[in-house]
Each structure stands twice: as structure tokens, then as C-alpha cells.
């Protein structure tokens, strides 16, 4: 009976011990992925901000400017691309909508971002775009890969349509979470005007024909959860200028937008709560379950060996071999 139990315990010990590395190095890389159906919005505000008044072509201070960023996964498009890409793909339709203090549109930039669901590497397929222009991304955007490393990453800037390094600047504590802080600075760069402008009759083409150009610089900051790779906070010190042409003769320039954009506090709380729950799921596969199964496997193995040893030891209650009766001889 003890032998049978020790064999069952041995099988269970091997089961648990084998599960530990299998979960961490086989299951986790295959199961951890960004769901293709994700929908998420984030609100950032700049208080105060500077905006151009297109009527006078002069900069004016406004009390508040709001940036609403939406990410929406297109499942059908992801399925279609997966057939040729031969890997799990996510297609995000993103919209960065900037609203003035009256809620009216200041600018809006749509994007289509296609990436590998596991590694977050960009996938190049038809439809990849920024503001209607076909692009070819060579850096991450919006999200870091799972299990973020303490190193610089290449981060895609949709305004310049290029990727540039985003530098790891250390570990911080944010709302009780240990996060990695990243910074990217884009120097003054000439960038295309958004296709949709807030004034009727003025389009990106008409401004371009007048010879006026748009320039932009930004310092982008992200606090990233190292487990899920999701940013829990983002800030941007953003400046845009319109320069020269018929609108600003004599090489003049005007601030089109300037402000320190920060995530709205209620959205910070919501993102931290969301990331905390996802973090537990990732930690379950990378840490809790592998270490738990390994420990359980060791305990079960010890138990199995103990039982086996006891089964081999002679039982103290066993009767001693009966002594042969001494037959006493007769006289």
C-alpha cells in the first residue's frame, strides 16, 4: 500500500516540477499577448496652454487644453493580417483628439498601428498609417513589451513619422507600483500639418501652398509597469510653431501649441487599477505558479521518498521468526 502511494506521489512530484519551467518558458511566451479586441481611452490635460488664433495668427493663452487618446483593436483586420504574417497580430486604430477649452476640435490625428501581439514589434502590412499617410514603423508605440528591460527602446513618434531612442532613466515608485521611467526628447523638427485643422477653409494643403511650415519639439515621459509593459502615467512637454510663408511673412513664427500635458488624475487611477490586475495575471505565469509548482514538486518528492524508505524498512511490529522448539533428549 505504501509503495503504491509513494509511486503516485512521485508521479505528482514530476508533474509539478515539470510544470514549473514549462509554464515559465513555454506557456508564458505563447499565452501573454495583447488582446486584439482591446478598447482603451486616456485623457490628458495641459493647464494652461498656448494656442494659435488662426484669425489673427497670434498665440493666445488658454486655461485648459485636453487630449483624448483612444485605442481600438480591429479584430477582423488582425485576423486578415495574421493569415499572411503567420503570427498573432494586433491592429490598433488610434485617434489623438485635441480639444480646446470650449471642447471644440483643435487637431486630430488618426493612426493605424499594427504590431506583434506577444513582442509588440511593429508588423508591416497595408493600412499602417499616420493621419492618412502610409508609414513604416520601426519602434514600439503606446506599449512596451511584456517584462520590460532596464534599457533604451526605440519609440515611434507619429508627428515626425520616425523612431528615436527612448531612454531608461531609472526605477520609480508610482501609486505604490514599482515602475521604470523613460524619457524621449525630439528636437525641433519640421513636421506635416494635421489633415484636419480647426478653421473652415484652411487645410494642410492651403497652408503648405502659402509656404508656411509646422515645427515641433517634445519631451515625452512615461512611467511603465515593467511586468505588463503598460504605461501607468505619461506626460509631454510639447511645443509647436508655424513658421514663415505668406501667413507669417519676413521669417516670422508663432506658437501653434505649447503646454505641459499630463494624464488626468481620474485616468491615472483607472489605468493603475487596470494595470495592477493585468500584472497579477502575468506574475501568475512568470513567478507565482512556476515557483509554487517547483516547491510543491520538491515537497511531494520528499514525501514519496519517505514513504518508499518506510516501505522498505522492516516493520517493528512484525513477529520475530519463531524459535525452533528445543527437543530435549531422554536420559
Amino acid at each position: 500500500m505504501r509503495r503504491k502511494a509513494s509511486l503516485i506521489l512521485l508521479a505528482a512530484a514530476v508533474f509539478c516540477t515539470a510544470l514549473s519551467p514549462l509554464l515559465r518558458w513555454y506557456a508564458f511566451p505563447r499565452l501573454a499577448k495583447v488582446p486584439p479586441s482591446q478598447y482603451q481611452d486616456t485623457v490628458l490635460v495641459a493647464e494652461p496652454a498656448t494656442l494659435v488664433d488662426y484669425g489673427t495668427m497670434k498665440a493666445k493663452k488658454v486655461p485648459r487644453l485636453t487630449v483624448v487618446q483612444t485605442l481600438k483593436g480591429d479584430v477582423a483586420a488582425a485576423d486578415r493580417i495574421e493569415r499572411t504574417a503567420d503570427r498573432d497580430v494586433v491592429v490598433w486604430d488610434a485617434l489623438t483628439y485635441v480639444a480646446g477649452p470650449d471642447g471644440k476640435m483643435v487637431s486630430q490625428i488618426p493612426e493605424r498601428y499594427i504590431f506583434d501581439a506577444h513582442s509588440q514589434e511593429p508588423v508591416h502590412a497595408t493600412g499602417e498609417s499616420v493621419d492618412g499617410d502610409a508609414v513604416r514603423r520601426d519602434g514600439i508605440e503606446y506599449k512596451w513589451p511584456f517584462l520590460v528591460e532596464k534599457r533604451d527602446y526605440s519609440y515611434y513618434d507619429p508627428q515626425t513619422r520616425t523612431a528615436a531612442p527612448i531612454h531608461y532613466r531609472g526605477t520609480r515608485t508610482f501609486h505604490g507600483l514599482e515602475v521604470y521611467y523613460f524619457e524621449q526628447t525630439i528636437p525641433w523638427t519640421k513636421v506635416p500639418l494635421p489633415k484636419k485643422l480647426p478653421v473652415k477653409g484652411i487645410t494642410a494643403d492651403s497652408v503648405r501652398k502659402m509656404g508656411t511650415t509646422r515645427w515641433y519639439t517634445t519631451k515625452r515621459m512615461f512611467w511603465v509597469d515593467p511586468v505588463t509593459g503598460a504605461p501607468v502615467n505619461g506626460e509631454e512637454i510639447h511645443k509647436e510653431e508655424l513658421r514663415g510663408g505668406d501667413l507669417l511673412p519676413g521669417g516670422g513664427k508663432v506658437t501653434a501649441f505649447a503646454g505641459h500635458v499630463k494624464m488626468r488624475p481620474d485616468y491615472v487611477d483607472a489605468v493603475v487599477a487596470l494595470v495592477s490586475s493585468q500584472r497579477t495575471l502575468v506574475l501568475l505565469l512568470t513567478s507565482y505558479l512556476p515557483w509554487g509548482f517547483l516547491t510543491l514538486g520538491a515537497v511531494l518528492l520528499a514525501l514519496s521518498l519517505t514513504l518508499e524508505a518506510r516501505a522498505r524498512r522492516p516493520r517493528p511490529t512484525d513477529p520475530a521468526p519463531a524459535a525452533r522448539p528445543v527437543v530435549s533428549g531422554g536420559p
Binding site: 513555454y26 506557456a27 505563447r30 499565452l31 499577448k33 488582446p35 486584439p36 479586441s37 478598447y39 481611452d41 485623457v43 485636453t66 483624448v68 483612444t70 481600438k72 483593436g73 480591429d74 479584430v75 477582423a76 488582425a78 485576423d79 486604430d93 488610434a94 485617434l95 483628439y97 480639444a99 471642447g103 476640435m105 486630430q108 488618426p110 481620474d266 485616468y267 487611477d269 483607472a270
Partner: peptide, 23 residues
Amino acid sequence: TAIGAPDGTTSPKPLRTTVPAHP
């Protein structure tokens, strides 16, 4: 791992062009 996680469906919610009052 062969079963994996379900893909789900595309959200019917539009890309936002208004400022939401709360998350």
C-alpha cells in the same frame, strides 16, 4: 497553449471626439 485566449470582437464604441467626464 493550443486553446489560448479568445480573440473577442471589435468594440462597437467609436473613437472618442469628445472629452469624457470620467474613465
